[in-house]
Nucleic acid binder design. Sequence first.
DNA 1: ACCTGAACACCGTTCAAGT
DNA 2: ACCTGAACACCGTTCAAGT
Lengths: 198, 198
Amino acid sequence: MRADAKKNYDQLLAVARDVFTEQGADASLRDVARRAGVGLGTLYRHFPTREALLEALLRSSFDALAARAQGLEASGAPDDALLAWLREIIAFTHGHRGVIAPMMNAIEDENSALHASCVSLRAAGAALLARAQAEGHARADLDGAALFDLIAALAWLREQPSHAPRADHLFNVIASAILVDRRRADDSDSGRGTSGNG
Amino acid sequence: MRADAKKNYDQLLAVARDVFTEQGADASLRDVARRAGVGLGTLYRHFPTREALLEALLRSSFDALAARAQGLEASGAPDDALLAWLREIIAFTHGHRGVIAPMMNAIEDENSALHASCVSLRAAGAALLARAQAEGHARADLDGAALFDLIAALAWLREQPSHAPRADHLFNVIASAILVDRRRADDSDSGRGTSGNG
DNA sequence: ACCTGAACACCGTTCAAGT
DNA sequence: ACCTGAACACCGTTCAAGT
């Protein structure tokens, strides 16, 4: 890559990181180009789709999450490992608002720039799930795809402002649906008041 | 309302029903006005926000769902009643793609035209939930707001094409998380193959 | 080899001008 | 009292023209 191209590429990534953090992963690409001081065509040259930009931005995080799953596979109780990883991936998506929708689209779209990352994450989760199942700690009728669905649903829910006060609680509810003999999980959260039933 | 206004109002609703069915609740309002043969300002006069249009379009369905909950309250086992109602509300949102996001926004926004409908639905679900809890058939640590969150999460998931083959299955998984002593529910669905773990 | 930004085809929303 | 559509401020995406 030519030096000026490299500079633009890096600048676009840095600005996109800021803009997406502020406004979510569906922020205006025009705005990204503008704030990067770069022509709109330059953005599209380096990142032909929004997914390509997201992939470049989040690649290292995806890799870290997959590696983390592998690390957890060799440590501690299978159900604890699965639970810990679920917490991490939900924390990740929560820190990257708007990213779960393109991830969910990408999981079955081989042409998406996010496809490989999502497939890796699904496989990482599937391995943790399989280990928990092998020891009877997780529902036997789930697979990696179902786990990915549940993660996506939780991640989307976590993005909804009205849900915020119950985020920890509902995480545990879903976790309890995945795990067996552990229906109450570590469910010692507060913040779920008695009000709110209209 | 003047006769011509009434005609435009009805025409807009009829066209919006078609357009939203085809393209989802986030379809272009310009397109609705265009296909209704009406000026864009006329649409905004009758329906100042997209939520107002949705509310007018779905009011009778919301009422029916709330009434249905009341009917179910007086019939059969509390857990069956809750489960049946959950199925109905998920079927409803599935038939109205894109409606769950504005509903989730509206639940805590008193200025939204959808607010009252959503609050009614939450209350209807809360009553069914409370009855199931009273007989020990549902997790005691849930309330109407949590149930609404779970419904929204399931509804969003149901909108994702990649999730479609597991829709029935994951409905039962979540249902099992809500109900107690019934972890496997009516979970006799097929269609969750062994593939898909990348 | 790479960059630029005008051009095109869209949006949502407002509001002056009409009937 | 109601309707219209231009106007404004945005999008995503493409591509001829430049360096």
